[in-house]
């Protein structure tokens, strides 16, 4: 999912770099209000864990692999503001240290994975959490669903960028069909890893999970 240099022209890349910079600024402000002594270390750990798991490509279909994006996972664990920042750190580091993802494409990649993946995933999480019973296993199910859908959401982000500024001339609808089809499959892997991770953290320190404590504190205020 890391876009290399060259796929998307520079003007389009610049527009998405600006949009990503706006989202990062917004997230810095939000994270500053939200992070405290307890949640800040978990946000740092989330970035490290996502970096590590992104190295673990799993097979999806004939000759294709995928890896965790981690946007939905991070949003559930530490909230969408800190999640956008955590994913951005991972992507910038991958681009500069490991030459993974183009340097001119960092804005495009941050937009797809750290903005669309995180906030799209978080929206799905909130929606699913709302319709499920208010218990701990619902958090894992909602997180898995968010993971599943966040991957094709990020893939559609790429197709949007391709439609605006592709350097190649292949049809947008062909790219859309192939990207969404492949990334629904990768989304299944994303859902499994997200569910396992959220369940493990819920079992050991549910008080740290943003998507769980955030709801219980709302309930406490209401009662």
């Amino acid at each position: 999912m890391h876009i290399p240099d060259g796929f998307i022209d520079l003007p389009t890349s610049a527009i998405f770099a600006a949009a990503s910079a706006g989202a990062i600024t917004y997230s810095l402000v939000g994270a500053r209000k939200q992070l405290d002594e307890k949640s800040a270390p978990l946000a740092g750990l989330t970035a490290v864990f996502i970096f590590a798991v992104q190295m673990l490509n799993f097979p999806v279909a004939a000759g294709t692999s995928g890896h965790l994006l981690g946007g939905a996972l991070a949003a559930v664990l530490v909230g969408p503001y800190a999640a956008t920042l955590a994913l951005t750190v991972v992507l910038v580091m991958q681009g500069f240290l490991f030459a993974d993802g183009g340097l001119s494409a960092i804005g495009l990649n941050v937009f797809n994975m750290a903005v669309l993946g995180v906030w799209g995933g978080y929206a799905v999480f909130l929606l699913v959490r709302k319709i499920l019973p208010k218990n701990k296993s619902s958090i894992s199910i909602a997180a898995a669903t968010a993971g599943l859908i966040s991957v094709p959401i990020a893939a559609v982000g790429f197709v949007f960028q391709y439609s605006l500024g592709a350097t190649a001339t292949f049809s947008v609808s062909a790219v859309l069909g192939a990207m969404v089809g492949t990334h629904i499959l990768i989304g299944i892997g994303e859902a499994i890893i997200t569910a396992l991770t959220v369940s493990a953290v819920m079992a050991s320190r549910s008080d740290l999970v943003f998507g769980w404590k955030n709801k219980t504190s709302t309930l406490e205020i209401r009662s």
């Binding site: 999912m1 890391h2 876009i3 290399p4 240099d5 060259g6 796929f7 490509n57 999806v60 000759g63 294709t64 692999s65 995928g66 890896h67 681009g95 030459a99 993974d100 993802g101 183009g102 340097l103 893939a155 790429f158 592709a166 350097t167 190649a168 292949f170 062909a174 790219v175 192939a178 990207m179 492949t182 990334h183 499959l185 990768i186």
Partner: peptide, 19 residues
Amino acid sequence: DGLEKVAQDIGFIESAKDN
């Protein structure tokens, strides 16, 4: 990965440049 495979299958992988 998914994007790279799609780029190969459709053909726009040629437009990739080295980091």
